[in-house]
Design a protein around this nucleic acid. Structure first.
Length: 488
DNA sequence: CTCTATGATTGTGT
DNA sequence: ACACAATCATAGAG
């Protein structure tokens, strides 16, 4: 019974179809020793199978037909079935259900998010819009770039879909081809539907790995495009002068607590035509840089503080002609001018306003250096008052803030005379705070514990002790206190 | 080109 | 979630 081994040999040989050396070897093996006719026939048939791929199509068809009609064909088929019985075990073991590839899922998700693989309309532009928002684009000046981005993205999208379609088509064609081939072969050798299915799976896996490469390179292309067109760092543009001035004005007029509330941020963002995130960035940068190098910002601080005071005075005098500061209108104006989310009642109480102003005037006089000792006992109705004066007033270095005080004092005079004290109170408070923070808080000659602490920059040079904008309150203050930042 | 200014991002702490 | 600090990367002035 040496038939079986030879068949096994030949069977493995089928897997290596087209091997040029094999037919010769087979011939040697079959025609050599016994010369048995049956074996000779089987050998011939096998040889024909082996060489079938080397033949032309017509010739192959003819031979295939001859093979199918061969008298020994059923016998060969039975033998193959027998062999199959033995090998099918190993095939069965090889079946495994693969979980979805996480990398492929990542790529799919990303392509979907970028609007490449999603629905045609909206996806790409939505992604572009999102990217535009992320880059903080103002709109007008880089809309051209965004349309360019969108065009490029849709180009990528198109290429991706074309390629994907091509791959899918090729996959289907190849699968059909293989299935036909297997069906054809199933007439000659035993092939179960399971095997066909398995083969199809293998083909699909191969093609999906190609697809993954396509997806990967598409993702890379999108990333490159994104970074080139929408990377905020690359596309950084300085804010325009007006926006910077608005931001600086707010910063220096709220120097004791430069943390704009969400509402204030939105207001600033609207005025500056930037995003709220950009406002936050700006304040973050400003705070840190101001703190790091106060000296460098002093001139700027003075300028803005003075300007704020002047603006406030103008607003106040203007308001005195049109309407009284005690009217709801002027209160609303005060809210909007200084971004104070105060209630109207907070601002329409002339008694405390006047009292505040008297305090301010007294304090201003004290701070100009003549009444240093008495200043400590004064108490501003503003929540910051106690802390503002917690340090030694006599230590404040007034040398570089005299001009500021001049302007404040004259303004106070103007507005106080007519008891029209609405709009400029807040700015004056903050202007004064500014002067304090500059002189008391930062002068190099001061020791840390002499600096005023909680509301302004603390001994460590930070505002961390300042309450959050939404909670700037004082337990001692009345209902009409001026808050540097509050939210309702 | 260098240097400084500045908007944005990232990592960390609370 | 927010602020801070460090850092990056570019803009713009010289």
């Amino acid at each position: 019974m040496d038939e079986q081994p030879r068949l096994m040999h030949s069977h493995t040989g089928v897997g290596m179809a087209g091997h040029p050396g094999l037919p010769q070897h087979m011939q040697e093996g079959t025609g050599g020793t016994d010369g048995d006719g049956r074996k000779q026939d089987i050998g011939d048939i096998l040889q024909q199978i082996m060489t079938i791929t080397d033949q032309s199509l017509d010739e192959a068809q003819a031979r295939k037909h001859a093979l199918n009609c061969h008298r020994m064909k059923p016998a060969l088929f039975n033998v193959l079935c027998e062999i199959k019985e033995k090998t099918v075990l190993s095939i069965r073991g090889a079946q495994e259900e693969e979980p979805p590839d996480p990398q492929l899922m990542r790529l799919d998700n990303m392509l979907l998010a970028e609007g490449v693989s999603g629905p045609e309309k909206g996806g790409g532009s939505a992604a572009a819009a999102a990217a535009a928002a992320a880059s903080g684009g103002v709109g007008a000046d880089n809309s051209a770039e965004h349309s360019d981005y969108r065009a490029k993205l849709s180009q990528i999208r198109q290429i991706y879909h074309t390629e994907l379609e091509k791959y899918e088509q090729a996959c289907n064609e190849f699968t059909t081809h293989v299935m036909n081939l297997l069906r054809e072969q199933s007439r000659t050798r035993p092939i179960s539907p399971k095997e066909i299915e398995r083969m199809v799976n293998i083909i699909h896996r191969k093609f999906s790995s190609i697809q993954m490469q396509l997806k990967q390179s598409t993702c890379e292309a999108v990333m490159i495009l994104r970074s080139r067109f929408l990377d905020a760092r690359r596309k950084r543009r300085n804010f325009n002068k007006q926006a910077t001035e608005i931001l600086n004005e707010y910063f220096y007029s709220h120097l004791s607590n430069p943390y704009p509330s969400e509402e204030a941020k939105e207001e600033l963002a609207k005025k500056c035509a930037i995003t709220v995130a950009q406002v936050s960035n700006w304040f973050g940068n400003k705070r840190i840089r101001y703190k790091k190098n106060i000296g460098k910002f002093q001139e700027e601080a003075n300028m803005y503080a003075a300007r704020t005071a002047v603006n406030a005075a103008n607003a106040s005098s203007h308001g005195s002609q049109a309407n009284s500061p005690s009217t709801p209108n002027s209160a609303a104006f005060l809210c909007s001018v200084s971004f104070l989310p105060l209630s109207s009642s907070d601002l329409t109480e002339p008694v405390w306003l006047r009292a505040n102003l008297r305090m301010l005037l007294a304090r201003a006089a004290a701070w100009t250096g003549r009444l240093a000792s008495s200043a400590c006992s004064l108490s501003l109705c503003d929540s910051t008052a106690p802390s503002l004066l917690s340090g030694s007033a006599g230590s404040f270095n007034m040398s570089n803030s005299g001009d500021l005080f001049m302007s404040v004092q004259s303004l106070n005079g103007d507005s106080y005379q007519g008891a029209q004290v609405g709009a400029n109170v807040q700015s004056q408070v903050d202007t004064l705070r500014h002067v304090i923070s500059q002189t008391g808080g930062y002068s190099e000659g001061l020791t840390a514990n002499q600096m005023y602490s909680p509301q302004g920059i603390n001994a460590n040079g930070g505002w961390q002790d300042a309450p959050t904008p939404s909670s700037v309150t004082s337990p001692t203050e009345g209902p009409g206190s001026v808050h540097s930042d509050t939210s309702n």
